[in-house]
């Protein structure tokens, strides 16, 4: 797949360091499911324009972390502040408005099975404030599909798409709302090496073109190397290390280093 994002300047192959204001602050968050303590006093920060990769073994609480960020899981303790708003204290209507500024790519892509590709993309658009004409919707959908190289699949059902195409469609559906923050849950899981590389490139394209700040949950080291400005390592619901890819790859702690070997 060749990305056809509508910019004259080619995006870089690796993420550029972009320190900026804080857009996500997670402070001393705890989350348990009965006796299973998934997140234990976890704190993290995301800067504007930054790609933060969260690495960890399966079951280390990575997916729960981003679900807590958007209020899909309630916190037991701690605080999550996104774009200056305390997520836990927001009423439902305001939480829905905040979520429109956040994109979420699910591990399974979470496409609406009963809708075509076009309807999947129109769905969030139709529920945004302000009336759009059919021509405007068509143009936005076409542009979003072009951005991820899927314009030929507009009238197909999600069940007719391959794994990589489903990921790209999930990404297009997220980007169509022009989010300020992107959350990727295992974006390359279940994909072959070439498609994984394409998705990693697409994540960089999104950061470059849309100026998004992203949290990327993964255990794919190649994806982490390509996309990360900064990496944190999660172990048993705690952040045990953080730094650049190179710093963590040569860390003193053998457990942290084992991810990169």
């Amino acid at each position: 797949m060749t990305s056809t994002l509508p910019e004259k300047v080619d995006p870089p192959d690796t993420a550029a360091a972009v320190p900026g204001e804080l857009v996500v602050v997670m402070a001393h968050v705890k989350k348990s499911f009965e006796t299973n303590h998934v997140l234990q006093d976890l704190s993290l920060e995301l800067h504007k324009g930054e790609n933060l990769v969260v690495l960890g073994r399966s079951g280390s609480g990575k997916s729960v972390l981003i679900k807590c960020l958007v209020g899909l899981e309630e916190l037991d303790e701690g605080q999550v502040n996104i774009l200056g708003q305390d997520v836990a204290s927001l009423p439902n209507a305001e939480l829905l408005l905040l979520r429109r500024r956040i994109g979420f790519l699910f591990q399974s892509s979470a496409l609406y099975d009963s809708m075509t590709v076009r309807e999947n993309l129109e769905f969030p658009l139709r529920r945004q404030p302000g009336k759009r004409t059919a021509a405007e919707l068509e143009a936005l959908v076409r542009e979003a599909l072009q951005n991820v190289g899927l314009e030929e699949a507009m009238e197909r059902l999600p069940s007719e798409l391959s794994g990589g195409m489903r990921k790209r469609l999930g990404l297009a559906r997220t980007l169509i709302l022009k989010p300020e923050i992107m959350l990727y849950d295992e974006p390359t899981t279940g994909l072959d090496a070439i498609t994984s590389k394409e998705i990693s490139k697409l994540i960089l394209d999104v950061q470059w073109i849309y100026h998004t700040s992203s949290i990327i949950i993964t255990h794919d080291i190649d994806c982490a190397r390509r996309t990360a400005n900064r990496i944190i390592v999660l172990q048993d619901g705690r952040c045990t290390a953080q730094g650049s890819f190179e710093e963590l790859a040569s860390a003193a702690d053998p457990w942290t280093r084992s991810f990169f070997e």
């Binding site: 979520r99 956040i102 099975d113």
Partner: peptide, 10 residues
């Protein structure tokens, strides 16, 4: 996760 996807899209 389609219901979650609806929620996060506002």
């Amino acid at each position: 996760e389609q219901i979650d996807a609806m929620q996060v899209s506002g």
